[in-house]
Amino acid sequence: MDFTDDQLMRYSRHILLPEVGGKGQARIAQAKVFIVGAGGLGCPVGYYLAAAGVGTIALIDNDTVEMSNLQRQIAHSMQTIGMPKVESAKKTFEALNPDVNVVAIQKRISKDNILDLIRDYDIVVDGSDNFPTRYLVNDACFMARKPLVSGAILRFEGQVTTIVPGEGPCYRCLFEEPPPPGLVPSCQEAGVLGVLPGVIGGLQATEVLKLVLGKGEVLKGELLIYNALKTSFRKVKVPKNPFCALCGESPTITELTDYEQGYCSM
């Protein structure tokens, strides 16, 4: 890849890294990343991937920007309240880096569209905050054999894991079934520290870049748990479940299903 002078300056701090260099930066430029959700997690993930020069970033989200989002969803602003979140984020990312092609998809992701939507992408990032979507994204990535970087946040705690199809566990190995809706806090009671998705989204973006570069170790078979109150990071090894309904030896899930909605979506 021949860099323009602007690109050379923009990406110089990457090119200087032995693990990246010109070749790694060219791989980043060719990468296509699909982000589910343009909220707390999708904003920082997309923002940092745009800054890093990821060539194509798709964002899917059906919501519009509200004042209550601005405490943590850093791609949106007072100027974009009422606008579809994906359009608001696209404006922000393109203003940061014109090299990046941002594909804004204002839709609800479902069993009927997900496989078509992710087909052309290398890596999927889950920044949704509801169990139905997380299972759907996990199942679709397993079927389409796409690496998935999954993140979740609640109150002061966040989790990250990277699922590489055919290598290690899937999201259902970690969490067999969605918790019953009564156990998940309703929207009124589900608080979150605004900076928390910044930490977790930053970790997710880092996982994506390592997958693109083929360098370092990703959180494969491991769940990283961050507690912001304690300032603690804990890594939990998660084995593949041989009885997993999706990736186990005798799977019972062979097609996609949409779970009942009605969970809180943050």
């Binding site: 050379l8 300056m9 110089s12 090119i15 260099g21 010109g22």
Partner: peptide, 14 residues
């Protein structure tokens, strides 16, 4: 700096 080394490194990579 840092463009001096960036240019040299890119030349080297090739």
């Amino acid at each position: 700096c840092p463009y001096t080394f960036v240019k040299a490194k890119l030349a080297m990579e090739a």
